[in-house]
Simulated scan of single mutants.
Amino acid sequence: MTGTWIDLVINIIIILFLVIGAFITLSASIGIIRFPDIYTRLHAATKASTLGVAFILIGAFIYLYAKEGIISGKLLIGIIFIMITAPVSAHMIGRAAHHSGIKPITKNRTDAYEEAIQERN
């Protein structure tokens, strides 16, 4: 056996982060295809894929630190960038869809944003 048990544990942690991230990203991709309207597709596209990409980048960060001794600031900045930009872009796309008149496909729909606009006017 060439490595120690600590190397084995680190490898298992890296594999878990990568596999969980890949699974979450795959489920986000399936959600984008399967969900019926723009609002639920945005939910799948931003929340799940943001978490999946973050897990993959954390796994890569641990790998680089444990195996190469490199602390990659680019990976950390990438995680922060994805965590900030994906929710903001989803909010803007959802708001643009609402302003365009696209209604959600649900049986019992309540539109709190529309009600707030009507109360203001």
Rank of each mutant, 00 (worst) to 15 (best):
M92P: 06
K47M: 13
A90E: 01
I30G: 02
A44H: 07
W5Q: 15
R34H: 12
W5F: 14
Q118R: 12
A86V: 01
F61N: 09
L42G: 02
L16D: 07
T50I: 09
D37H: 01
T50P: 04
A66L: 05
T85H: 12
I105C: 07
G52A: 11
I30K: 08
A97W: 01
P87G: 10
I14P: 00
G3Q: 10
N121L: 09
R34Q: 15
Y63A: 11
I12M: 03
Y113N: 10
D37A: 08
L64Y: 14
I10P: 01
S89P: 05
R95H: 09
W5Y: 13
S100A: 15
G73L: 14
I102P: 05
I117K: 12
V53S: 08
I13M: 10
I56A: 07
G101W: 01
V19G: 03
A112P: 11
I70T: 13
A54V: 14
I15W: 08
E68T: 13
R95G: 08
G94W: 00
V88T: 13
L57W: 07
I77A: 11
K107I: 15
F81A: 13
L64P: 05
A48F: 11
T25D: 03
G101C: 00
L76V: 08
L57V: 02
L26G: 10
L57K: 07
F23H: 06
Y63R: 10
A86R: 10
A116V: 08
I30H: 11
L64I: 12
M92L: 15
M1V: 15
E119V: 08
S100D: 11
H91S: 07
E119F: 06
F81D: 02
G52F: 00
I20G: 01
F17M: 08
M1C: 12
I62N: 03
P87H: 05
F61K: 04
G94D: 02
I12S: 03
I20N: 00
K47W: 09
D37S: 04
D7K: 12
I33E: 09
K103C: 00
G52R: 04
Y39S: 02
T46C: 13
W5R: 15
H99W: 09
I58V: 15
G69W: 02
D7Y: 06
D37R: 04
Y65G: 02
D111M: 02
I70L: 10
N11R: 09
I80E: 04
N121Q: 12
V9H: 12
S27M: 15
F17D: 00
A48Q: 11
G3F: 12
T106G: 15
G31I: 01
H91A: 09
I79H: 08
T106H: 12
L75C: 01
L8K: 15
I20F: 03
V88D: 04
L51P: 00
G101L: 00
I102H: 04
L57I: 09
I71A: 12
L8N: 13
I20M: 03
L51D: 00
I102T: 08
G52Q: 01
T110A: 13
L18R: 01
K67D: 08
R34T: 07
I102Q: 07
E115D: 07
R109P: 13
V53Q: 10
I6Y: 12
V19P: 00
A54P: 11
R34E: 11
R120D: 05
G73D: 11
F35H: 05
F17H: 03
I105A: 04
A45S: 14
V9P: 04
I6C: 08
G69P: 03
G69H: 02
I30V: 14
T40H: 14
D7H: 14
L8Y: 09
F23R: 03
